[in-house]
C-alpha cells in the first residue's frame, strides 16, 4: 500500500477556521509539507501575521509566534538573530506584508535576513471583511473601493516579487498560484526551495502565492480559481524573479 496523499505531520490535527474554498488551507499544508520534506519541524519557528491567517499558530506543530500587523519580518529577524541555526518563516497576507509592513519587508530583504517569507496575495483584506488591499487590481470592487479601484484615486497595485527581486539581500523570489493542481505542485516545490535556500544560509527567500478569497470576492470557490487565472496572473505573472543559486531571473 502506497500513500499517495495524507496530512503532513507538521500540520496540526485541527480543522481550519477558513471559509469554504479559501486557499489558505492549501498554503498552510504546502508549508507543512516542506517542513516535513526537510525534517525540520523541531528546528522551525513560524510567525503568524494579523489578518485571516492570525490563527496560523494553531495549525502548525512547530513553535509559533504571533506578530503585530506587518511586523512579522522584524519579529523573524529577532528570532533568527538569536537562533541563527534555526529555520524561521513568516506567513503574511497582502495587507500585512505590502501595506502596513512594507518597510519591514523591504529592510529584512536589504539585510539579507536568512528567513523565508510566505506571502499570500489574494488582492483583498479578508479578515476585516473585503477592503481594498495594496494588491487589489485596477477596477476590482471592494468595500473601500466600491466603484472599482482607480489608479488616479487609489493608486496602482504593488508587484512585490518584482520589487523584492531588486534588493541585494534577497536570495530567492518566486510567484506561484494555487488555482489548479499543476500550479499547487509548483508552489510546493517553490516553498521547499525557499527553505533550502534558508538552510544553505543564502539570504531571504520570498514565495508570493496568488490565492483566493471566495467570500469577499463574491465568487464561488471554482469561480475564484478562474479569477486568479484570468485576472490576477496577467497582472502578477508567475515565475522565478530571483534565484541567486542560478544567477538571475527566469520568468515564465
Amino acid at each position: 500500500m502506497n500513500i499517495v496523499f495524507e496530512k503532513p505531520k507538521a500540520l496540526a490535527d485541527v480543522p481550519f477556521h477558513y471559509c469554504p474554498g479559501c486557499t489558505h488551507g492549501i498554503a498552510h499544508r504546502l508549508v507543512a509539507e516542506a517542513i516535513d520534506a526537510l525534517d525540520i519541524e523541531g528546528q522551525t519557528i513560524g510567525i503568524a501575521p494579523v489578518g485571516c491567517a492570525v490563527f496560523a499558530y494553531n495549525y502548525f506543530n512547530c513553535d509559533m509566534v504571533q506578530a503585530p500587523h506587518g511586523r512579522a519580518p522584524a519579529v523573524a529577524t529577532g528570532i533568527k538573530r538569536a537562533n541563527p541555526d534555526k529555520f524561521v518563516f513568516t506567513y503574511q497576507g497582502d495587507g500585512d506584508l505590502a501595506a502596513i509592513g512594507t518597510a519591514e519587508t523591504i529592510h529584512s530583504g536589504a539585510r539579507g535576513e536568512n528567513i523565508t517569507i510566505i506571502f499570500i496575495n489574494n488582492a483583498i483584506y479578508g479578515m476585516t471583511g473585503g477592503q481594498m488591499a495594496p494588491t487589489t487590481l485596477l477596477g476590482q470592487v471592494t468595500t473601500t473601493s466600491p466603484y472599482g479601484r482607480k489608479a488616479e484615486i487609489q493608486g496602482n497595485p504593488l508587484r512585490i516579487c518584482e520589487l523584492m527581486s531588486t534588493i541585494e539581500g534577497v536570495a530567492y523570489a518566486e510567484r506561484v498560484a494555487l488555482d489548479n493542481v499543476k500550479n499547487i505542485r509548483r508552489a510546493k516545490a517553490a516553498i521547499q526551495k525557499a527553505f533550502e535556500i534558508q538552510r544553505d544560509k543564502k539570504g531571504l527567500s520570498i514565495i508570493e502565492i496568488l490565492s483566493t478569497c471566495p467570500t469577499n470576492w463574491g465568487f464561488s470557490p471554482a469561480q475564484s480559481m478562474d479569477f486568479v487565472r484570468e485576472k490576477m496572473i496577467p497582472y502578477y505573472p508567475l515565475g522565478v524573479y530571483k534565484d541567486i543559486t542560478k544567477g538571475g531571473a527566469n520568468n515564465e
Partner: peptide, 22 residues
C-alpha cells in the same frame, strides 16, 4: 547590535528575540 529601519521594527525585533529566549 543591529540598527533597525525604524523604532517599530526595533521593538518587534526585541519581541522576536525575547520570544526565542534571549
Amino acid at each position: 547590535s543591529l540598527q533597525a529601519e525604524s523604532e517599530i521594527a526595533a521593538i518587534n525585533m526585541v519581541l522576536g528575540a525575547s520570544a526565542s529566549g534571549a
